[in-house]
Design a protein around this nucleic acid. Structure first.
Length: 478
DNA sequence: TTTTGAGTTGTTCGA
DNA sequence: GTCGAACAACTCAAA
């Protein structure tokens, strides 16, 4: 008698290592792996994310036989259950509101139809509902959340299970399923920057633990140095498990106690991701509505009705604001699909506070251009910078784009790399070329307004306007 | 229940 | 150049 297969639905868990759902599926005979592109998804992936998805699917396809299908998820799954004769469907849970709702609907429907449908914990240290404060409510401040999560602990990572994979056709060819960009190919050369897929992620993780972790606590703020993990996209797609990463960091600190502080800071960054999902789960409007409603009163400039605001949004997106550190970050994003976290904070603060454009415009741009675009981290972080989020930065914390550049790119290497038209400018004026003497500018071959833009806003005036705007959000101003 | 202290990532000003 | 305080007021969490 032919054994009944189990259908394993890959989503953002593109790995075999420490994949509890896959481990479960593997205990029930042959496994058919499927990935679905569902056009009814409310907020489809952005372009950069789809580039990564293509590469990640290609990598996963070399590890296991993978069936690729287009279509509404429930319909496709029904079709596959019928075609394969499977009676069991297994997945790693999703925690974004739309994904979780869809999963519940599919679970309920297929269960009613007699199938066994099972979700296991996704790529999380704790499920978003596992953590709550003393009143049983969601945590609204990071530190107590993180303390509670750490006290609770998490499961040790498990090695990849032995799986009896069963190929199943037909499958849509990858180049049709998830096409790479052409005309223009804005991702040209990205394959030399990134190695999507489980193997690349593990390699990157181990390389980081061996060479980047030491000094991480301080040097993670330096965009010119290799002391961040660059694992954000791999984590988003589940190419590496956060439990595995936590384990690797803890093992490194155990082997060498002088790495303790660095490892703790790295773990807390994983904690921020958990906190973001905790917030998204409990407050599903996080990606589009101010978490603090008081911020609804903020006098944003509207690019839809204000041409100057529209112009400034475009300058920001293109890295043409005239503030070199900001422009360097925005160009890094466009050219690599990624931006160093310190620079993300600076460009976000600039959009929100200097240009007084709603954080949603920035969130949307990041959603489309980041390879690591994530519904929880992206929304929570933009709201954090805006001051409208949970445990957010105080409103008067307005990053100085000049000072941040000088402080965190002290040699100017990062800024010069992404703003090559300023490469010959003396360091003293690199972050504020408008202060350079005509002689310095001429020597460096820079004509401000031609080779590099004049600043689109004045820092002091913009800062004052942002502070004035925030008074509208004060509790007693209503 | 009440009180008290804390709260990712900063900037500016004035002594 | 360095240092501490102010920048506001609020909510949350823990004692």
């Amino acid at each position: 008698m032919k054994p009944v297969p189990t259908l394993f639905w890959f989503r953002n868990d593109m790995r075999l290592d420490d994949n509890p759902a896959l481990a479960h599926a593997a205990t029930h005979g042959p496994v058919v792996g499927v990935f679905i592109d569902d056009p009814t998804t409310p907020r489809p992936r952005g372009g950069a994310s789809r580039w990564w998805l293509h590469q990640s699917l290609a990598a996963l396809g070399t590890q296991v036989p993978l069936t690729l299908r287009h279509g509404e998820s429930l319909a496709v799954l029904r079709e596959l259950l019928r075609e394969t004769g499977a009676s069991r469907l297994v997945w790693s849970r999703r925690y974004d509101p739309a994904g979780a709702a869809k999963d519940k609907a599919i679970h309920d429907t297929l269960t009613r139809e007699g199938f066994t449908v099972l979700g296991e914990v996704g790529n999380m240290l704790a499920e978003p509902w596992d953590i709550s404060n003393a009143e049983g409510e969601p945590c609204k401040v990071f530190t107590p959340f993180w303390k509670r999560l750490q006290a609770r602990g998490w499961a040790a990572p498990q090695p990849a299970p032995r799986v009896a994979w069963a190929a199943h056709g037909p499958s849509v060819p990858l180049d049709t399923f998830c096409p790479l960009p052409t005309a223009p190919n804005w991702a040209a050369g990205w394959e030399t920057l990134w190695t999507p897929g489980e193997h690349g992620a593990r390699q990157r993780a181990e390389d980081f633990m061996a060479h980047g972790l030491r000094g991480y606590a301080d040097l993670r703020n330096r965009p010119d140095l290799p002391h961040v993990s660059r694992l954000s996209a791999a984590i988003h797609f589940g190419e590496v498990s956060v439990r595995r990463l936590a384990h690797l960091a803890q093992a490194a600190a155990h082997a060498d106690p002088t790495l303790r502080r660095d490892a703790d800071v790295f773990l807390s960054e994983l904690g921020w991701r958990e906190f973001s999902y905790h917030l998204l789960w409990n407050y599903p409007t996080l990606p589009h509505a101010n978490w603090k409603p008081a911020f609804d009163a903020y006098p944003w400039r509207d690019p839809a009705t204000d041409p100057a605001a529209a112009r400034d949004l475009t300058l920001w997106q293109r890295g043409q604001t005239g503030y070199p550190f900001v422009d360097a970050g925005m160009r890094e994003l466009w050219h690599t699909g990624w931006m160093h976290n310190r620079v993300r904070m600076v460009v976000a603060s600039f959009l929100i506070k200097h240009l007084r454009l709603h954080w949603r415009h920035g969130e949307a741009w990041f959603w489309d251009t980041l390879v690591d675009a994530d519904p929880a981290s992206n929304a929570a972080s933009w709201q954090w910078v805006a001051g409208s989020g949970a445990d957010a930065a105080p409103y008067f914390r307005i990053f100085n784009p000049i000072g941040q550049g000088k402080k965190f790119d002290p040699m100017g290497a990062y800024t010069r790399h992404w703003c090559p038209e300023l490469a010959k400018l003396p360091l003293d004026f690199l972050q504020c070329p408008w202060d350079a003497t005509p002689f310095d500018l001429a020597t460096a071959g820079v004509r401000l307004g031609h080779d590099y833009p004049l600043p689109c806003v004045n820092h002091e005036a913009a800062r004052a306007a942002a502070l004035a705007g925030y008074h509208a959000t004060r509790a007693d101003s209503a």
